[in-house]
Amino acid sequence: MDRNKLIKWIKTPAKMGNKYSLHAVYFCTGCGIIEIPPTITTRWDAERFGVTPAATPRQANLFLITGYVSLKTLKSIIRTYEQMPEPKYTVGFGSCPINGGMYWDSYNTIKHLDKYIPVDGWIAGCMPRPEAIFIAVTHLWKMIDNDMADGYKKYRNNYDQYRANQEKVLGSLDWPPLFK
């Protein structure tokens, strides 16, 4: 048997697990959170897809950044993101984390979230509908299959740059660097 095939065969269950069991961090970063309750409850029932909210970042592997990110929130987001175990996936929800959205000239919100933490996928719109979350989830599945959802690796490899960017807007952070 081919060695690579064997490795793939061993790796598949983990991939399957990562795909169909997305536990999302419950973090209401912005107004996008208003569409999360409908998504996880009766009408849309995200649990069908294995998407459920997790209590703490330690238990989660999916981070939905639901809306604009103010500086104070950014700090919490970084902390929460760093506490999640790998592999972890981030999805930016709404137009604000993409480029600032309608708060493009606000002094207190950051404009491009992917300069501070890696983002695997975006859902555009203000407000995106719950269906859009499912489309994002299915896209994420494809990305996991093709090893494209590798934001956490990017974060590890380019940690210095990320940390520098974070410190540029937030001043010093309260915790020591995650990777040395």
Binding site: F27, T56, P57, R58, K75, S76, I77, R79, T80, Q83, D174, W175
Partner: peptide
């Protein structure tokens, strides 16, 4: 021990 869950803060 400082790297523990504190609701997103340090």
């Amino acid at each position: 021990q400082d790297d523990t869950y504190a609701a997103g803060t340090s």
